[in-house]
Design a protein around this nucleic acid. Structure first.
Ligand SMILES: [Mn+2]
Ligand SMILES: [Mn+2]
Ligand SMILES: [Zn+2]
Ligand SMILES: [Zn+2]
Lengths: 146, 146
DNA sequence: TTGAGATTTTGAATCATTCTAAACGAGTAA
DNA sequence: TTACTCGTTTAGAATGATTCAAAATCTCAA
């Protein structure tokens, strides 16, 4: 089963929501809990099915709503690969994503600040960046499968 | 109107198709011509509408087919941003994309080889990359609008 | 306790993309 | 010429993730 949010986690949820004038609700709390519990970049349906175990009446639309809210207040990032279902990531550190094409799994890749800096430097002077997304596609060699 | 392919362009089209055992057809030639004529990363619908001016009977399904064929033989790249329609890019040089959020336009950003090299170095040893995608979102300041 | 405003819920609508099956066309063998 | 093969194109239906609309619930300040 899924642990509750600890004090610090509930704090950042509350703070992020409050900052954009929104409330903590049981549904939002559970959806956020699901995201933190297993950091495998779940799709909406995966979040929905995991959350159902804790709150059987929850609706899919609400999961869409909650996730959209979280993205809107900067608590969570969307991760898109090709045309697949959007995935969600609560890791707020700057990082890239690696999608293993044989398993479909998405891994976080830590992103050195210096690379981000270099990247913004390749832009023409009048281009102002708000976000940068970096995604790798490939395979992970066996051995100790990550 | 749209120029025909020049000798070199028709050559790379023929070669790329032949390499994967496929033929040049009038439809493929026109779709490829449309892509080269205006390098603004058109969507399928945009390609379709531009191609219709030259070949009125062309079907949308065929445009999907042709573009998929081109992607499959490495002639063209798909460009995805968020959940929007897929766009297509015939620029084979390594490059990133910048999406201007106020206009929706997508610009090519030249990508120094050294940055690509550095990027592959941040991966764990057992991660084998096949593709890297880098995309910026932001705005272009006015003045001489690019 | 009440009313306003936010949130959730259900089910329908959207729409880019994919699928299906029939028509077509170029090339080849008979 | 004719018939056959196989890849391609076409029209239209199906799919499926996401969004929308409207009614039901909830929250919370007054
Ligand atoms: Mn692909
Ligand atoms: Mn967005
Ligand atoms: Zn992530
Ligand atoms: Zn491009």
């Amino acid at each position: 089963m899924i642990q509750n949010l600890n004090k610090h986690e509930r704090e950042s949820l509350h703070e992020a929501l409050a900052k954009s004038g929104q409330k903590i609700t049981p549904q939002r709390e559970i959806v956020y809990t699901v995201l933190l519990a297993q950091r495998d970049h779940p799709t909406v349906d995966e979040v929905y099915n995991r959350a159902l175990e804790t709150m059987p009446g929850l609706s899919l639309a609400t999961v869409y709503n909650c996730l959209e809210t979280f993205v809107g207040c900067g608590l969570v990032r969307q991760v898109n690969h090709e045309r697949e279902s959007t995935r969600y990531c609560p890791n707020l550190a700057p990082h890239a994503h690696f999608r293993d094409e044989s398993t479909g799994r998405v891994h976080d890749i830590e992103l050195p600040k210096e690379i981000l800096d270099q990247l913004t430097k390749i832009l023409p002077a009048n281009f102002e960046t708000e976000t940068i997304e970096i995604s790798f596609q490939g395979r992970t060699k066996s051995s100790t499968q990550n």
